[in-house]
Amino acid sequence: MRQKQLVAVGLVVLVALSGCSFLSGPVTFSADKATVSDQALSETDYEEVSVNQSVITRNFSAAGQSKQVEVTNWIAQYDREIDLGPLGSKRAAVFSAVATPQVKVLGQGPFNPVSDYSNAQLVMMLQQNYESIDDIQHRSNYTATMLGHETTVGTFSAQAKLQGGQSMDVYVHVTKVQDGDDYVIAVAVYPQQFDDRESQRVQTLLGGVQHGNASA
């Protein structure tokens, strides 16, 4: 996921700087942290894996001048152990929240490719606990509330390979909202045979997403 997010951030900066004149000093953009509340984690038996910043710095040159741009994203990752029978217990139910800033440079913008991403494209930003997620097929949509915003959550079927090589059929839930100056993206993946209980857990996690001061 991080590699693909870096690509997205690179596109943000390239678009933002295109055709602009350069001023002295670096340009910095930072998202506010997006996490899941302790209460939602307790209710769903999910555990925090990591909450990290992803800081990208790029130098750009034009007309003999150079400009440094720094973009800070937040990536929060959670998972839950599931008994997969012959495959043993695996942390195969995963949930991620990503906060990425809108970018404005020299009066141009805001820019951020995720504002135009479809839910299917957002699915491809997640690789936590899985080596690959392929053959993604849209199933349905439902409405949920995240950060006080009503949002459409896309559900998808897919073929996934766990870290370690085991392949399985999974369901994916994905959505995004604009909250303040950031976009917050949530993605969940779990084995299909656990849909009845995991889909309810995902909705609880979506409702427990916090952003900015609420997650401090």
Rank of each mutant, 00 (worst) to 15 (best):
L84R: 07
Q68E: 10
T145N: 09
I133M: 02
K90T: 04
Q200V: 15
V189G: 12
S24E: 02
P110K: 02
T175P: 07
A34W: 02
R2Y: 00
D45L: 15
G207I: 02
R91K: 15
Q166H: 15
V9C: 03
S115M: 13
Q200H: 09
V189N: 11
V103Y: 00
M125D: 08
S50H: 04
N52P: 12
Q178H: 11
E198V: 01
S215C: 08
S21A: 07
Q200D: 11
K4C: 12
F29L: 02
T143K: 08
N112M: 07
V69C: 02
N213K: 15
K67Y: 00
L126I: 07
V15R: 04
T151L: 15
K90D: 01
D181V: 14
N141Q: 06
Y142R: 15
V209R: 06
V12D: 12
G148T: 11
E150H: 13
V12K: 13
G165A: 11
M168S: 01
D45H: 15
V27Q: 00
F29S: 05
G180D: 07
S140T: 15
I75T: 04
S18R: 00
P86V: 12
K33T: 07
Q163R: 06
L162D: 04
I185W: 03
S167D: 08
D182T: 10
D83Y: 08
V7Q: 15
Q178E: 13
A188D: 05
Q193E: 12
V71G: 05
K67H: 03
V69H: 01
T175R: 07
S66R: 11
T100L: 11
A31D: 12
V187P: 00
V49R: 05
L162I: 06
S54Y: 08
T72G: 06
E70R: 07
R80I: 10
F194M: 09
T155A: 08
Q128F: 10
L23C: 09
V184Y: 01
A214P: 01
T204A: 12
H211P: 04
A216P: 09
A34V: 04
G25E: 01
D169A: 12
S132V: 03
Q200M: 10
V15N: 02
L162R: 05
S89C: 00
Q5L: 10
Q121N: 15
V98F: 01
